[in-house]
Design a binder for these strands. Structure first.
Lengths: 195, 195
DNA sequence: CAATTATCTGAACATACGTTCGTTTAAAAC
DNA sequence: GTTTTAAACGAACGTATGTTCAGATAATTG
């Protein structure tokens, strides 16, 4: 037995990726074996190596793609005229983007320590660049008097932690719609920075 | 070779616990082997089973002890006269308790999915009981007009996420002292709930 | 000082791991 | 319709896993 009916690289490739995403998010990188991923795809373990050089690349590619998409979404945002508008825009974008990708977000936060040092450096730089975007908004608001923030660096971490925490409980179809959640969080963020 | 000079249960026991704590926090539960823990302790893998029935109990005991200590600290708090005082007390306690135990906190948040279902249920109940404490404060403040919070349940999650996020960057001896961090965060929490 | 007990070793268990590779087969190209 | 190639199989590689246990030895007890 070998190549099965209907087997195709452009079908299996994404399926490998999806299986890795789902299983890494569910059980953690270290707890998932290549054989489990293969079983989820419906293929033997050896066949996975047509699509990834190794297990580590499977993780790294997922995280890099996620961070790159996040930064792309950030760069495409409608730039707010005022720091207040920009902060609202950031808040809503962050909530929407993250709530749409619970598995990617989970992996991005939980599996950093399972990256090789080189890969970790790359992902860390992407993350910092995202944080810098928010920090710039906060500093602009402090400068023009819109915000009252004693330490923009800490406020940046606080806001991001608060927003990302939504992923621990928010589920589509739950008590609140995403729009309601956005509204509530924007209210808290706005007040927290004194605007 | 067998029992070595100076070997004692009351010495090795805590050392097993400490090694597990350190290694689980550093590499993750699934990525750490019993032989690694044994090497850290300076003992053969088999000897660990004098101190734990299995690897899972090592994780569960760490998490249960952590949550129990957190709840104990919470019950011993000086109860604030007003909701505002109570919220400040909560904020400072949370920050102090968590910053003193970075490894336990890391494990408590990252290794939930590596608990057996029964163990997960127990830990989850402890966590919820902690969250309920904060939610009660927020509701009291809403009722007496001290706070302006549209959804106490969400505000609870937001505040805890914001505060726990401190552990991702705070290091003793860094730019800011714990006291300064407490002050900054209390300011943001207070404003976020409209007090 | 002899008997007992607590503590640890070191080997063994069956099973699983990530990865490689020769082989086989279906689909694509000519 | 034949040749070429992409894709998957399935067995094998050496190593590691959690856990058990008989045997050995140091500390403790009487």
């Amino acid at each position: 037995m070998a190549r099965t009916t209907g087997s195709h690289s452009d079908i299996t490739g994404p399926r490998v990726r999806d299986a890795a995403l789902k299983l890494f998010a569910q059980h953690g990188y270290a707890a998932v074996s290549m054989r489990q991923i293969a079983r989820e795809v419906g293929v033997q373990a050896g066949a996975l190596y047509n699509y990834t050089p190794d297990k580590q690349s499977l993780l790294f590619d997922l995280m890099q793609a996620h961070m790159t998409e996040l930064l792309a979404a950030w760069n495409d945002r409608p730039d707010g005229a005022t720091p207040i508008d920009a902060l609202e825009s950031f808040t809503r974008l962050h909530l929407r983007f993250h709530s749409e990708r619970p598995e990617e977000v989970f992996i991005a936060y939980m599996e950093l320590r399972n990256l090789t040092p080189e890969n970790f450096t790359i992902i860390e730089a992407l993350r910092r660049s995202y944080e810098d975007g928010l920090e710039a908004i906060l500093r602009a608001g402090v400068d023009n008097g819109d915000f009252e923030v004693s330490d923009p660096k800490i406020a940046t971490m606080a806001v991001i932690a608060m927003l990302t925490g939504v992923n621990t409980w928010f589920r589509e179809g739950g008590r609140l719609s995403l729009e309601e959640v956005e509204q509530i969080y924007w209210g808290m963020v706005r007040k927290a920075v004194g605007a």
